[in-house]
Design a protein around this nucleic acid. Structure first.
Lengths: 229, 229
DNA sequence: TCGGGCCAAAAGTCCAGACAAAAGGCTGGC
DNA sequence: GCCAGCCTTTTGTCTGGACTTTTGGCCCGA
């Protein structure tokens, strides 16, 4: 036999999608499957583990594996750099700095980032264009207590995200997606009408538990994020 | 030594986040790491493989592993059943059917689902409440050519999603997120003002390449999807 | 200098066996 | 009947070894 873990995974998935093994019903134990496929248990284990990661099956020691009842499905959205995102669509990327200043963080930013009163931040507003059309409005706050070098960084030619990936090691982040209405400023920058519904992504990045940067990305009218699973 | 793959993964990740191994720079080969950690190469392999899946490092045969330059980060959003989503928030779930009919799919739905002209569909509109507040507006189209049993299913007491997970085996799906403005009907159902920005999720589910169902989920004003990575 | 072909290095996979860790279920005492 | 504690099943992980596949880099010839 000598089935690869990919073949085993595909075969099991096939039995599930064809309805051979129904939601809630148990799947044979690893030993049995290993014998059936003529491979080592480790190989079956890898196939099953990946199916569990994909949210297709549930596994419990002693109780065995079963097809998930409620398909707790998860969509993976890639979050590339805006430049990449735009260039991958075959459009020309252009960047424009709108505003840049250093000062004390306003209360709502302090609350979001968990900063102490009077914390110094660098505030940058900029725009990302795909060809001639505005694509994304970026409103970024950088915690100068963690990243003092950001005070003097030059964001006139390229965006703060590109500077950040080059200067900050890997971090944790919390990301949230919502809908917002264009105010006058956003409408002017994104070439839409005030009140238009826009997709907004907010991300707060932390390093060793301290907030490094908070960014609010508002996309052009009609933008959609797509994923497959 | 006898390090577990979790410990190895955490240690490598630590070296990366601490900046010890910088973006773009190479990571020692599996053999070397295995020796350093005093474990088998398979164990190191698993740690590295997961780091690659998480988008932290890049791996290539012969070339070795290196810390990713552009952190192609991916956010995972769980998409549970609405009932679960609401009950997990500690609110009481309530369901209400608004409209249900069988007929020919309008053109825009046919285009979205890839159906032939004149295809018969069941169209269901319903609402999901968290406690007394409207939470989500569901506009669903079910392809009766694939699921003829859906013609006579009773959606007056519980939503079509619950019926579907019980009657359809696992499927592929395409999901997309965008912002939309409330029209008069949505405003009335979701207790918001016309024109309010609302978060909209559209999902088209396929089985063996044929569209099973297309659903448009519009959330209450202010809803946000959150993920961590 | 350029290109093709070969080689070796690195990741990718697999195996057979072992032990670890949950956790369902049984049994016996109350 | 109920509960605690043990037993056993099942998954989770690890080992040391092997073979496979990919591919960067070297060598050599044109």
């Amino acid at each position: 036999m000598t089935a690869t873990y990919r073949e085993i995974k595909a075969d099991i998935l096939g039995r599930i999608t064809r309805g051979e093994w129904k939601p809630g019903s148990p799947i044979p134990a690893e030993r049995e499957l290993a014998e059936a496929y003529g491979s080592a248990r480790a190989t079956v284990n890898r196939a099953m583990r990946e199916l569990a990661e994909d949210g297709i099956i549930e596994r419990k020691r002693k109780a065995g594996s079963r097809v998930r009842l409620a398909p707790l499905r998860q969509a993976r959205f890639d979050i590339p750099l805006v430049r990449r995102e735009i260039e991958d669509q075959g459009a020309a990327y252009r960047y424009a700095l709108v505003q840049s200043e250093v000062g004390r963080a306003p209360d709502w930013v302090r609350a979001r980032m968990g900063l102490p009163a009077g914390a110094k931040v660098r505030h940058v507003v900029c725009l990302h264009f795909a060809d001639a059309a505005p694509y994304q409005h970026e409103d970024r706050w950088i915690n100068l207590a963690v990243l003092p070098q950001a005070r003097d960084a030059d964001f006139s030619a390229s965006g703060p995200n590109e500077w950040l990936v080059a200067h900050v090691p890997f971090t944790e982040a919390e990301i949230s997606i919502s809908a917002t209405a264009a105010d006058a400023g956003l409408a002017a920058h994104l070439a839409c009408a005030p009140g238009d519904p826009l997709l907004q992504i907010e991300r707060c990045t932390r390093w060793n538990g301290r907030a490094v940067t908070f960014v609010r990305l508002v996309h052009h009218r009609g933008h959609r994020m797509t994923a497959r699973y």
